[in-house]
Design a protein around this nucleic acid. Structure first.
Lengths: 209, 209
DNA sequence: GCCTCTTGTTGACAGCTTGTCAATAGTCCG
DNA sequence: CGGACTATTGACAAGCTGTCAACAAGAGGC
């Protein structure tokens, strides 16, 4: 008489992990951290609440995992963009940056491009690392990878430039006070200024310019 | 037999409010939101937990009040800085900006200059408003208050500039990859570029330049 | 086909958190 | 001194999180 249909399916850890992660990505994208309960996460994933702790330890760690996943981007062909004059390379880099964001608009706005750093050291650490990587990619693309004089300062300035890019993008996508073209102009011009005026003046010119 | 010494002092609502707020400012400065419990807040304030809810409604509102208080700055004599050439005014503005931060270093790092916008719409709204005010003050100081052509775009770009300033300041204070002088140069040069190149090119020059 | 072993999964439990609210007790004023 | 006003307390209920022993799905041996 008892139905032989199993009440739940047994999945490979990786699959279950991925399933829960996908759900978490969605919910954390819609609402902020504390507004999402593990009870809801479990119900939405069709899983017992305890399983979430089993796979991720704590709700916090699950959250961090979501961010980690979102901020990670594979080493795209940097070289593909690294052609032409400094101006051209800057233009190409910025175009690609804006393209990626435009494509992943929602994700970027809700999770990454929030300016990050929400009073939470762990989140800050993850986003900081992501920014760092992005900055280094930009330096490579623009062709300044082999700068030695004032190298660390250049990196710091480009990371700062990331702050400009982030807010400008929000102005474009959320407040709609700037068009994409205007953001592009703003970023390209500023980037060139930082490289050819600010950094070059401080540490002397460098071969790539 | 019973001691006549009162077990607790009755304060004016404003005083008690201020006392709790001071405590909250300190604790939220040390740790992030969820790591601070109302129990601890109450104990530290030497007050019953219920009183916090009585004055602020919820823990969240108390938190928002702290941020609101920190991001508010009085209308300092803007005119005091508005003298000389565009370059000089920009320099003065940035100097003052860095001064204020250096003075309130801890507060700024933990609460305001975190890049803000921590996946929390309410916090985002408050910080956004603060950024907006700061940007408008800068525009005034620099002497572009009466720009009409592309006025909104100018404001948006200056707000974006705020993102650059924010991250650059973190590079200076936290990571120590830039000196204050370098940050100053970076910001001043970039600000001038935005005004005289980016904005002026888009909308034509304006009287103040 | 049945039994056994592995382990993915469950569900109840304990502890802590937050917001509410009626009761309490400082303090001012007549 | 006595009464009134109200700042303050403390217990309560509901909800959330992390733990853990027990359960059962599914694979492999016989």
């Amino acid at each position: 008489m008892t139905s032989t249909a199993p009440r739940w399916r047994r999945l490979e850890p990786d699959q279950r992990r991925a399933q829960i992660l996908a759900c978490a990505r969605r919910l954390f994208g819609e609402r902020h951290y504390e507004a999402v309960s593990t009870t809801e996460l479990a119900k939405e994933s069709g899983v017992a609440r305890g399983l979430i702790n089993h796979y991720f330890g704590t709700k916090r760690e699950l959250y961090l995992e979501v961010i980690r996943e979102l901020t990670f981007f594979p080493e795209f062909a940097v070289e593909r963009l690294a052609h032409g004059s400094l101006q051209q390379r800057a233009d190409a880099s910025i175009d690609r940056f804006l393209d990626v964001i435009e494509r992943n608009r929602t994700m970027w706005l809700t999770t990454i491009g929030t300016g990050g750093y929400g009073r939470d050291p762990d989140v800050a650490a993850i986003l900081q690392q992501a920014d760092e990587i992005a900055a280094d990619r930009l330096i490579q693309t623009v062709g300044l990878a082999n700068v030695v004089e004032g190298r660390e300062e250049l990196r710091a300035m480009i990371r700062s430039f990331g702050g400009l890019a982030s807010v400008a993008t929000r102005e474009w996508l959320i407040r709609e006070t700037l068009t994409r073209e205007q953001v592009h102009t703003l970023l390209a011009t500023t980037l060139l200024t930082i490289i050819t005026q600010v950094h070059a003046t401080m540490f002397g010119s460098n071969p790539a310019i």
